[in-house]
Nucleic acid binder design. Structure first.
Ligand code: ZN
Ligand code: ZN
Ligand code: ZN
Ligand code: ZN
Lengths: 149, 149
DNA sequence: TAACAAACAGAAATCGTTTCTATTTGACCA
DNA sequence: TGGTCAAATAGAAACGATTTCTGTTTGTTA
């Protein structure tokens, strides 16, 4: 089973049509080594498709993100970025604000948090954000990398 | 020492002038029970000051947030919100996406994360986000509250 | 292959946020 | 207390990432 077929399966499972556009977005994104902006993804898509609108890219990225197929990056600049992470299961990310590399963290405090919220606050957790912003090893050696964002 | 005086001290410590505008922003924000948007804060400021520009509000909020005096809320809608939290020391928040209440969490995984990043990834942590989005106790009882944001 | 809802293109609008420049203010000191 | 100067601000304007809208196309199912 190649990537396109497995992506089609994923979309079908979410009751989303396996359109050329959606498969192309997943193909591009899964080939990226770093998180990418909607416009960057759009520019790459235009090379392989006759026509593709930027609003379509926004819509597809949001759909896939809402369904957990891709990850939305919370960038300090507040611009939107997305990343495809093959790692199944709930986890969080260390992102490099300089070169945009994404690395998995094997840590999540969701249990402790859930306990505290439900016990002390009697509230209901809908979602949680845990993201570490920093510089990856190569970037932390470069002087001035921190100014790049 | 009243609030204004202590806020002036804080600003002085940050080498920021204790201007009428900055003190007014802190006064408004410290009286809020919920996180507020720049425009909402601006509207309240206009009631107590002759003139105040919206760009000024944005600038002051960002300054105070950068210096850790107030907290920036990472809202699912990606709009900017700020909150004044009197609780000194590093901590994180549970926010209600319906009524905008903010509650403190006594939990932060920064040590574990720092260890994992520096040991496994050899990277450098610049900042981390940990925020729990949900519904507070009263809102979780109301039907339809989840649709309010 | 026909039918229909879902998905899309392209243009346009939206609006939260930032930039810019002239003016005012606050901190400091004589 | 008044003078000085950099810091801070007002107001207008621009910005640009994101969203909305409408007519058209596409994918799925039978
Ligand atoms: Zn991952
Ligand atoms: Zn988690
Ligand atoms: Zn707090
Ligand atoms: Zn923390």
């Amino acid at each position: 089973m190649n990537n396109n077929e497995s992506f089609a399966e994923i979309l079908k499972g979410l009751q989303l049509k396996a359109t050329t556009r959606r498969l192309a977005v997943l193909s591009i994104l899964s080939g990226e080594q770093a998180y990418a902006s909607p416009e960057e993804i759009w520019k790459k898509l235009k090379r392989k498709l006759n026509t593709i609108g930027l609003p379509t890219v926004y819509r597809i990225l949001e759909e896939l993100s809402d369904n957990g197929v891709i990850t939305k990056i919370i960038h300090p600049s507040r611009q939107l970025y997305y990343y495809y992470c093959g790692n199944a299961g709930h986890h969080h990310h260390f992102i490099c604000v300089s070169c945009r590399k994404v690395e998995d963290l094997n840590f999540c405090a969701s249990r402790e948090i859930e306990n505290e919220v439900s016990r002390n606050l009697k509230g209901r957790v809908l979602s949680h954000i845990l993201q570490i912003n920093g510089l990856c090893e190569p970037c932390s050696r470069k002087k001035g990398a921190i100014n790049a964002f």
